[in-house]
C-alpha cells in the first residue's frame, strides 16, 4: 500500500468496525454494529465494502452463500498515515492551541526523563 489515500467518512466508519472485530467480518456484523445507528440499508453497506475492497483496505471471500471480509491494512498503520504528520505539525506549535493538555513539551529524551524520575525518588521528607 504505497499510495494510501484518506478514507471518506462513511468508508472510515465501516473500516472501524472491521478493525474492532475478529475477522472474518460479515455484512451482518457491520449492519448490527453500524447500520442501525446510521440507518444505512444493507445495499449501502455492501457498496461501501466493495469500495474498500477496490482500495485494497479489505479483501473478500465467498464461503458458500455468505461473503466475508478481511482487513488488509493495519489500523495502526492507517492511523500513522492519517494523523502522524498532522499531529507532528499540531504539536510543533501547540503553545497557543485551543486545547488544554497535560504537558506542553514537544520533544523529550528518555534519558532526561529517567534523570527526572531519579531526582523525584531521591527527594525525601
Amino acid at each position: 500500500m504505497n499510495d494510501m489515500k484518506k478514507l471518506p467518512d462513511a468508508e472510515f466508519e465501516i473500516m472501524k468496525v472491521v478493525w474492532a472485530n475478529e475477522p472474518p467480518i460479515t455484512t451482518n456484523i457491520i449492519m448490527e454494529q453500524l447500520g442501525r445507528e446510521k440507518e444505512w440499508k444493507a445495499q449501502t453497506v455492501i457498496t461501501l465494502l466493495l469500495r474498500l475492497v477496490k482500495r485494497g483496505f479489505i479483501r473478500t471471500e465467498k464461503n458458500g452463500k455468505e461473503r466475508t471480509y478481511f482487513p488488509m491494512v493495519d489500523k495502526g498503520d492507517y492511523l500513522k498515515f492519517e494523523t502522524g504528520d498532522f499531529m507532528e505539525r499540531f504539536h510543533a506549535n501547540s503553545f497557543t492551541s485551543l486545547v488544554a493538555t497535560l504537558y506542553n513539551d514537544k520533544k523529550l529524551k528518555d534519558s532526561d526523563l529517567d534523570e527526572l524520575v531519579k531526582w523525584l525518588k531521591e527527594k525525601r521528607d
Binding site: E88, D105, K107, L108, K109, L113, V117, L120
Partner: peptide
Amino acid sequence: ETIIGVVRNGAKLQTALSTDFYRVGKGI
C-alpha cells in the same frame, strides 16, 4: 511520576507516529 509517565508514553507514541527524535524539554 504520572506526568513523566504520560510524557514518556506520549514521546513513544509520537515516535511511532512520526519520524522525530527527542531532545530535552526544559519545561518539564
